[in-house]
């Protein structure tokens, strides 16, 4: 595992923000950190980026003990805070040059690093402008460029898409996938679950300072038991009875001409069931797996 957190406790005055938080994150993943307001997302990200000292527990990133060697951790981690700031009086090139130097990149290597990161973030044509002259989406890109200019292994992004228009969000999602392809591991916190769905491979649900669940989206989608939807051309009185008679179906609910259930089995089983339904002369016009989105997973986890 690239990131391992064990029994992390962080307290503000009279308030425990993180309560025995433990989890592990594999390399090359994009983990969506989700939870209600005040759940502890920002505090967790700040602890991971060695900006805050927790009361207790341990954090290891790429075999570095973050609490013992916070400065070493800064070299491995790129962090973008929710209220990120930019040096508005400098040009984008000067901003990137400053961060590159501050991250220990040698002066002679800075132009190369700036060219690489600006190409990666598609801001090469904005280098001579000041951040104050840029749109919110472009400012976000400059901020991310600053966070990754030193090629960190881990990138922590706190609410990176807040305030962005749909087009900018889409390109941000593409960018995250690109960073993942280049071998970076990302943790992205957000409220907008639909946006996280576009690129996340894992989901970490935090509530009241505790990790409620860690889900691998790929494994979740690959699970044999899937939610299905059946739509008929017209309502059938004994639909519930017919469905109850099929062994592979569970959690059945019928609503007029529609039925929802979980189906346990792969494509062959699905074909067999459809065949059975047609044999019963049901006027089937739709029989399809229901796409599970982050919202469903998140809400069902919080309910449970």
């Amino acid at each position: 595992m690239l990131i391992t957190v064990e029994n992390l406790i962080f307290e503000y005055t009279g308030f425990r923000a993180l309560n025995n938080v433990s989890f592990a994150i594999p390399p090359g993943s994009i983990t969506a950190l989700v939870g209600p307001n005040g759940a502890g997302k920002t505090t967790l990200l700040r602890c991971l980026s060695a900006l805050e000292q927790p009361l207790n527990g341990s954090i290891s990133i790429d075999n570095i003990d973050v609490l013992d060697q916070p400065r070493l951790c800064h070299r491995k981690v790129g962090y973008l805070s929710d209220f990120f700031g930019l040096y508005d009086k400098l040009t984008v090139r000067q901003c990137l040059h400053f961060v590159a130097r501050a991250q220990g990149i040698e002066p002679e290597d800075c132009p190369k690093a700036i060219a690489l990161v600006s190409k990666r973030l598609n801001i090469s044509d904005r280098l001579e402008q000041t951040p104050a002259q840029l749109s919110r989406g472009l400012r976000q890109r400059v901020a991310i460029a600053q966070a990754i200019i030193h090629q960190p292994k881990v990138v922590l992004l706190d609410e990176p898409a807040s305030g962005l228009d749909p087009e900018a969000r889409h390109s941000l999602a593409e960018l995250f996938l690109e960073l993942q392809r280049q071998g970076m591991t990302l943790i992205v916190s957000s409220h907008i679950l639909a946006e996280l769905e576009a690129y996340s491979s894992d989901m970490l649900i935090i509530r009241e300072g505790k990790i409620v669940e860690q889900i691998s989206i790929q494994q979740h989608n690959a699970a044999p038991r899937k939610p299905f939807k059946l739509t008929l051309a017209e309502p059938v009185a004994n639909l519930a009875e017919i469905l109850a008679g099929i062994a592979q179906l569970s959690d059945i609910s019928v609503d007029n001409a529609q039925a929802f259930f979980h189906l346990d089995g792969e494509a062959t089983v699905q074909h067999q069931i459809l065949k059975k339904l047609l044999e019963q002369n049901l006027p089937v016009c739709e029989f399809s797996p229901q796409a599970t989105n982050f919202q469903d997973v998140y809400l069902s986890t919080l309910k449970s």
């Binding site: 980026s49 060695a50 900006l51 400065r71 800064h74 070299r75 981690v77 790129g78 962090y79 805070s81 209220f83 990120f84 700031g85 930019l86 040096y87 508005d88 961060v99 501050a102 991250q103 220990g104 600053q146 030193h150």
Partner: peptide, 13 residues
């Protein structure tokens, strides 16, 4: 004021 302190704090400077 400009929320840039975190940039310096997470740097290697």
């Amino acid at each position: 004021r400009n929320h840039t302190w975190d940039i310096q704090k997470t740097s290697a400077i």
